[in-house]
Every structure is written in structure tokens, then in C-alpha cells.
């Protein structure tokens, strides 16, 4: 999408009536034009540089060290080369627990979020404007719930002894009075996390996809209809290709977000370290660093997570640039 980026014409065109333009002024105006964007960017770049880029570099730095509590207190580094990475990558825990808990979970969470969000967007498009507004407003409620509170609500719903799900299943005779502990089993634990994430994440997808849907010219659909395409075919042949960039963006953004899930795991019973089966990369890194004071090892885990996300981001950028969205 071409933007009216302002490349202001040279000064003479600015105002024939103006008495101001003197040669020296014009020169300084040009310098100012060169400097101005950087002056405007400086505060933001400074903040990003000091508070995001530098810490990122430092965490890479830390990942090559054996950094414990005594190192933090004394400030003395203790380099151990690639030891942290060797230890991590040869640890079956990474391959059998942490990675599946991060990546496989993300696949399901993203799939659920995007599919549900798209279905709801299609539903919203078919509603009258009044209903569309009402339903969108209600969807916002799910989005607006802070992660911390929604996690506690889900824990309460799935409470082992008195939760709603237990009572419902018990009343139906599906489980006995001893109940079922959803939080100790990895699969059910992540099923709840997925539910929590999908519930929180689908509104963004629904709203964004809806906006995309509304930009599709009606004629396209009508033409397809004349060709005898049914609703299913029209969806795949007209809707999907037209708003493919939108799908790319919501999928990749959701993927990035779902790889980084923290509070939704950390706050669940056993999620803060006592149940090693359920940690994902983020929580693992945090627990390693702040509960067990292996800041170096925790940093290495964090670096691995960042690399995974970087790979996904590159795909994201490709998707954006291919459609020449950024120009």
C-alpha cells in the first residue's frame, strides 16, 4: 500500500509570495530536514536501545557464563564457554519436556485461536450491524481479562475438589467422587492453558479477520456465485486468497505470543517449578534463574527461546515484504 510519504518539494515551490527564503536559510532547512527524523526518533531509540537491545545482548553474554548468586553479588564473571548450551542440548528434558510444552502447545493454541477467530469473524460478517456491534463488544470482554485473573478463573473452574467441571462431570457420573487432578497431568494441564490462551486470543483474530473480510468487494463473491461456487468453495477461492496477508499476520503474531506464554503457566498449580513436567521454555528459564540462581543457564534457555522466535519472525517479515506491505 503506497503511503503519501512526504518528500517535500524543494523550497522554491513552497511559497512564491514569502519573502523569507534566503540561500543560507534554505541550506539550514535542508540540514534540519536531515536531522529532524533522527531527532524525533532519538528518545524512542534510546529507550529501546538501553532497555531492550542492551539487555538482549547481555543475556547472550550471560549465557556463556556460570553466573550464580555469588557472581551477582560480587559482579565477577565466570566464563564457561559453551558449557551451558552443551548441558541444555544434551539434556533429554529439553527435547522431551520443555520443547513440546512450548512448540506443540503453540501449534494447538495458534490453530485453535485462528480457526475459532476466523469462524467468529465469518459469523460476525453475516450479522446485522447492530448485532455485530453487540457481539464484538462482548468478545472484547474476553480480550480485556488480564492474563493473571483469567488464569485464576480457569483454575477455579477446574478446581480438583470443588470446581465446576468436577461437579458437572461427577453429576453426570463420568468421574468418581475422588475427582481428577487436571494440574498434575501434562496433557490436561496444557489443555487448560490452551483453553485459557484461545479464550484470550481469539478476539484479536476475529476482529482483525473481520476487518479484512469487510474490505473484500462484494462483486468478487457475486462473480464466484455466478460461476456456481458454493459457500465452501467461495471461502477458499475468494475469501482466503484476498485476505491471505491478514491470515499470515494473525497466525504469526499468535505464534509469537503463544511461544512466550508465562503467567498462564507459572500461576497454575505446580507451574512455578514444583511440577517439572509442565514447564515451558519461558518458565523454565525463569525458574532456573530466579529460583535456582543459575542465571547463566537460565540465560542460555532464554537465548534458545529467542532464537526460535527469531526464526518465526523472519517468516513473518517475509510474509509482510512479499506483499510489499511495508513500503
Amino acid at each position: 500500500m503506497a503511503r503519501p510519504v512526504l518528500t517535500r518539494p524543494a523550497a522554491p515551490a513552497a511559497g512564491p509570495g514569502g519573502p523569507r527564503p534566503a540561500p543560507s536559510r534554505r541550506l539550514s532547512a535542508r540540514t534540519r530536514r536531515l536531522v529532524r527524523p533522527w531527532a524525533l526518533l532519538a528518545p524512542a531509540l534510546l529507550a529501546i536501545g538501553v532497555l531492550l537491545m542492551y539487555p538482549l545482548a547481555r543475556v547472550v553474554w550471560l549465557s556463556f557464563q556460570d553466573y550464580g548468586l555469588d557472581n551477582v553479588v560480587s559482579g565477577q564473571p565466570d566464563y564457561n564457554g559453551l558449557d551451558n548450551y552443551v548441558e541444555l542440548l544434551t539434556d533429554p528434558y529439553l527435547w522431551t519436556v520443555a520443547l513440546p510444552n512450548t512448540a506443540v502447545f503453540a501449534v494447538f493454541a495458534v490453530g485453535g485461536t485462528v480457526v475459532l477467530g476466523t469462524l467468529i469473524a465469518l459469523l460476525l460478517r453475516s450479522l446485522s450491524p447492530l448485532w455485530r456491534t453487540v457481539v464484538t463488544g462482548c468478545i472484547m470482554v474476553a480480550w480485556a481479562m488480564p492474563a493473571v485473573t483469567s488464569t485464576y478463573v480457569w483454575i477455579w473452574i477446574f478446581d480438583v475438589d470443588r470446581g465446576l467441571v468436577f461437579q458437572a462431570l461427577h453429576a453426570l457420573g463420568l468421574i468418581g467422587p475422588e475427582g481428577f487432578n487436571w494440574f498434575t497431568e501434562r496433557l490436561t494441564f496444557y489443555a487448560i492453558v490452551t483453553l485459557n490462551i484461545v479464550h484470550h486470543g481469539f478476539p484479536f483474530v476475529a476482529v482483525t479477520v473481520l476487518a479484512g473480510l469487510l474490505t473484500i468487494p462484494r462483486e468478487l463473491h457475486e462473480a464466484a456465485l455466478l460461476d456456481g461456487a458454493n459457500a465452501w468453495q467461495r471461502f477458499w477461492r475468494v475469501t482466503v486468497p484476498t485476505i491471505r496477508p491478514v491470515f499470515a499476520v494473525v497466525t504469526i503474531l499468535s505464534t509469537i505470543w503463544d511461544f512466550k506464554v508465562f503467567a498462564q503457566v507459572y500461576l497454575m498449580p505446580g507451574g512455578a517449578g514444583s511440577n517439572a513436567e509442565v514447564l515451558n521454555f519461558g518458565v523454565w528459564s525463569y525458574v532456573r534463574s530466579f529460583s535456582q540462581q543459575s542465571y547463566g543457564l537460565g540465560s542460555a534457555i532464554a537465548v534458545l527461546l529467542t532464537l526460535m522466535l527469531l526464526a518465526i519472525t523472519i517468516v513473518y517479515l517475509r510474509a509482510l515484504f512479499r506483499d510489499e506491505e511495508l513500503r
Binding site: 480438583v160 475427582g179 481428577f180 514444583s274
Partner: peptide, 10 residues
């Protein structure tokens, strides 16, 4: 023996 509860595991 089932003397505890399922929830007690955490």
C-alpha cells in the same frame, strides 16, 4: 488406599 485426595497431589 485412596486415603488422600486427587487435588492433594499439588
Amino acid at each position: 488406599d485412596g486415603l488422600s485426595s486427587t487435588g492433594a497431589a499439588t
